[in-house]
Amino acid sequence: MRIAIASGKGGTGKTTLSVNLAKYSSLHHRTLLADLDVEEPNSGVFIRGKKLAEQEVFRMVPFWEEKKCTLCGKCPYYCRFNAVLRLGEKIVIMPELCHSCYACSELCPVNALPMVADPHGIISHYLSDSLDFVEGRLHIGEEQAPPLIKETVKYTDNLRPAFEMEFWDSPPGTSCPVITATYGADLVILVTEPTPFGLYDLQLAAETMRKIGKQTAIVVNRIGIGNDDVFKYCAEQGLSVWATIPDRREIAELYSRGELIYPEIEEYRKAIDVILQRIKDIEGQLCEK
């Protein structure tokens, strides 16, 4: 079962929920935690373990071989991302804009634009007690998160034996990084908070998940701040609220120190118990189908 933990708004508690769910689940099941928030990966702040592997991830981008080039001018025309420009007698490549589609390279009549590897980010694999933790970390200055997110998912796909439970800590927002991170998930848990910002961004995220056809469940964090508009919205839309988590200063303090919440706060442990039970119910239903 692959569960992506996402949210429209940042800072609603995705990472906290992901690491606590994964750690707790790993007590009884073969579990993986993947940090797909590659721009700002911080599951690793809470998970301490032994590093099993680390690999550099490269993106393929074109390299201009001046001697071969006849300056026919086709490559800038083929590139729709303005990553290949002709400036006078030169072809200039902007690697950060390149989507690695290979069009310029493979359609060049004289093979003057071979594709070369450009460092993009790092995938690290840790073992924390019985939990496998895989992190994608984008190099600073790289603009595009999706290629590294895809590679990180691919890395976890190749781990054997397969996991019973996989939790994917996903990036915030509603655009391409989130779509890429949730694309292969069986279930998406959206974490929100009961404020106007939380509600508005939940609406965007829930619509996004509906558009890509994902089964979605809601967790409302920081109960006690704000109002109950989030619950009204979920009821109207038929979105199932699986658990609520109270707004407690102790939780925020544990979080601030990079510590797990469920061993200390009974209410939090109960909430993740309920979520894990619900996940198993869904898994049962999927198996029957």
């Binding site: 940042g10 800072g11 721009e39 700002e40 984008l138 600073i140 200055g141 790289e142 603009e143 595009q144 998160a145 990036p171 915030p172 927002g173 990084p177």
Partner: peptide
């Protein structure tokens, strides 16, 4: 601005 360090932030 937006969170993160990717294209919207740049």
């Amino acid at each position: 601005g937006s969170p993160g360090i990717g294209c919207p932030v740049i």
